[in-house]
């Protein structure tokens, strides 16, 4: 299982990446947390606003940086 954070390298995207890593660690997620700047991949998933988070290729969040708690809840639901 992988969690992907998608963005185009802006500070907001990096913030979401850090937050996602923290959230994943806190809920005991064992897989990979990756950061990609591949816009083509983003669009194939139907994401039009960065930053976004996808779990196993399925977008779960886009266009905003949520709170740590919300992110933990989203990850927990999927694993």
């Amino acid at each position: 299982m992988t969690i992907q954070v998608l963005g185009s390298g802006c500070p907001t995207c990096k913030k979401l990446y850090d937050l996602t890593k923290q959230a994943a660690a806190e809920v005991g997620f064992k897989g990979d947390v990756k950061y990609t700047t591949d816009i083509q991949k983003m669009l194939e998933m139907g994401i039009m606003q960065s930053p976004a988070v996808a779990i196993d290729g399925k977008p779960v969040l886009s266009g905003r940086v949520p709170s740590l708690d919300e992110l933990k809840k989203i990850i927990k639901e999927k694993i």
Partner: peptide, 15 residues
Amino acid sequence: FCSCSAVPLFIGFVE
């Protein structure tokens, strides 16, 4: 939008 969304939005719209 965050200026980093400009590209995906652009492609998504024109596509």
